[in-house]
């Protein structure tokens, strides 16, 4: 029996469709969602799952910030979830957090190039290079950010906090299918995430069990719809 099927563990809280933030300003460009988190937490797999789930209904593109330049972009291209031309890799000079927070110019250039080449777009996903618990995106680069941790990193991660866990618009606790194997207590992670994040949403998921990351995809749809005044998203 997998731990995340245990009814005593609330998998998701609060309802991910409920956004405690003030509404986004209506944009005349694609919504930009940053996806950050430690190395190996499943960021690229989440991006691939979101492409799988959303590519037919949203006009989307992806920017990757891999430490080794094109590894993640290549993974996504091989996964065949999106036209490879819609995936751009940004070099980060050994400092993945610098490229998403302190000097966002290369990422902005990549986003704008994609919008110019394929626009108008509904959504650009910006995946950070694997970094540490303090790496968050600049508000100058993304509108909303998802922070991804996984249960195999230990159930202490939410308690340790850090700007990613504490302030991200959505916290994703990934690989819940591995919880019994690594002795991670999802109940502890859930309690600590609530304590750290207040009203901000947290989603527990296993992409192995849900290849379309349906809860996260629903959150993304909601964000895109809000930025467009509920008009375009999902309309085609």
């Amino acid at each position: 029996m997998l731990a995340d099927h245990d009814e005593s563990v609330p998998h998701t809280h609060p309802e991910p469709g409920v956004d405690p933030h003030p509404p986004l300003p209506q944009l005349d460009r694609a919504v930009r969602i940053g996806i950050g988190g430690p190395v190996g937490s499943g960021k690229t797999a989440l991006v691939a799952a979101l492409c799988r789930a959303l590519a037919d209904e949203l006009r989307l593109a992806v920017v990757t910030n891999d430490i080794y330049t094109t590894e993640d972009a290549d993974f996504l291209k091989r996964a065949g979830v999106l036209d490879p031309a819609r995936i751009r890799a940004v070099e980060t000079g050994c400092c993945p957090h610098t490229a998403i927070r302190d000097d966002i110019s290369a990422n902005l250039d990549a986003v704008e190039e994609l919008e110019e080449a394929f626009g108008p777009l509904d959504l650009v996903l910006v995946e950070s290079g694997g970094d540490n618990l303090t790496a968050t995106f600049s508000k100058g680069l993304v509108d909303q950010q998802i922070f991804v941790v996984d249960v195999s990193g230990g159930d202490k991660v939410p308690r340790k906090g850090g700007p990613g866990v504490t302030t991200a618009d959505l916290l994703v606790i990934n690989k819940t299918d591995l919880a019994p194997l690594v002795g991670a207590d999802l109940g502890v992670m859930d309690r600590d995430a609530r304590a750290r994040r207040g009203d901000l949403p947290t989603i527990f998921q296993s992409i192995a069990e849900d290849p379309h990351a349906s809860q996260v995809a629903a959150w993304v749809r909601h964000v895109v719809a809000h930025s467009r005044g509920h008009e375009h998203a999902g309309a085609h």
């Binding site: 400092c95 490229a99 000097d103 110019s105 290369a106």
Partner: peptide, 11 residues
């Protein structure tokens, strides 16, 4: 060097 002009990604 912290002026955000893209230099950090170039060696």
């Amino acid at each position: 060097g912290r002026f955000p002009s893209g230099g950090h990604a170039h060696s």
